[in-house]
């Protein structure tokens, strides 16, 4: 009887404090190096999916110099070298003030427009202790068109040059390859061409990327204008863009085909006229160069 009672005791001594076995070492180290909450990173390669902003922000002290360029419509044919004779350009400087706040300013050649914006992180996608299936960020921007007044005779107000843009980015990185984003958007234009045009345009953006290699991804983006057009006024065409992100060191090149000529929200949501079915498509590219200040 007695020996049998000692056996469990013997077993216990093997688990004495201080005694640690190989598999315990592994699990101990593993526990120490596994973060409680893991945040999704690099949901998109650039701060733009194609025309519209992505969930990605410049981190603190990162400056992004952007050159966006769109050629003319492909339907111009050989005479226009399929649009390459024309060009519309946007230049931007965008900066990460903190990891959660990014500000930017830019200028578009179309209507000599300046824009400024703030983009702020609300929630990050995370798993583990803190679980959040999607990332959410907000965006507020202002657009100032400085083109000479079409009718200098009438009383023109500075406020007529302004538009305001508000967006929410709701994104999820489903896997290393696939990320999708929904972008509810409002564009408020202080002055519209005719009394029949809506001042407020509501739109819903859909975008995504699929990584083909670690440095190249295929991107697609669609902005659905929800605000119904009034009778007698042409509704803006929904912007559909397809393209590739190519990353090389500190640069990201984005090559795309899009029916939107304009590269800011006011433009591609509210003033897109090109139609894919009629060859109203532009070849274009964005170049992003990031500097650390």
């Amino acid at each position: 009887m007695k020996p049998l009672m000692i056996l469990p005791l013997l077993a216990c001594t093997l688990l004495l404090p201080g005694a640690l076995f190989a598999q315990d070492v592994d699990s101990l180290l593993s526990a120490l190096t596994t973060p409680a909450t893991e945040y999704a990173s690099a949901t998109f390669k650039a701060t733009r999916i194609i025309n519209g902003h992505s969930i990605k922000q410049m981190k603190a002290r990162q400056l992004d110099f952007r050159i966006h360029h769109r050629f003319g419509e492909v339907r111009g044919g050989a005479y226009e070298l399929w649009g390459l004779d024309q060009s519309t350009i946007f230049l931007g400087l965008e900066y990460g003030v903190t990891d959660w706040l990014m500000v930017g300013a830019g200028r578009s050649s179309y209507k000599k427009a300046y824009n400024g914006f703030g983009k702020f992180r609300l929630w990050r996608q995370s798993s583990g202790e803190e679980n959040m299936p999607v990332a959410i960020s907000g965006y507020a921007g202002i657009d100032v068109q400085t083109l000479d007044w079409t009718d200098p005779q009438r009383e023109n107000y500075f406020s007529s040059r302004l538009s305001y843009i508000f967006q929410l980015f709701i994104a999820r990185k489903f896997s290393e390859e696939l990320s999708l984003q929904v972008t509810p958007s409002v564009v408020h234009r202080n002055l519209v061409p005719t009394a029949l045009d809506e001042n407020d345009l509501f739109a819903l953006g859909f975008g995504g990327r699929y990584k083909l290699t670690s440095r190249i991804s295929f991107n697609a983006e669609y902005f659905l204008v929800i605000t119904p057009g009034r009778e007698g006024v042409e509704k803006p065409v929904d912007a559909l863009s397809l393209g590739f992100d190519i990353e090389t060191g500190g640069h990201v090149f984005q090559l795309m085909f899009t029916n939107a000529l304009l590269m800011t929200e006011r433009g591609f949501i509210g003033e897109t006229t090109g139609q894919w079915s009629k060859g109203g498509v532009h070849l274009g590219f964005n170049i992003s160069r990031v500097f650390t200040l």
Binding site: S41, A42, M58, K59, A60, R61, Q62, S214, G249
Partner: peptide
């Protein structure tokens, strides 16, 4: 540099 860190992990 945040971008380097991203490339280190991603690529």
């Amino acid at each position: 540099r945040a971008l380097m860190e991203e490339h280190f992990n991603e690529n």
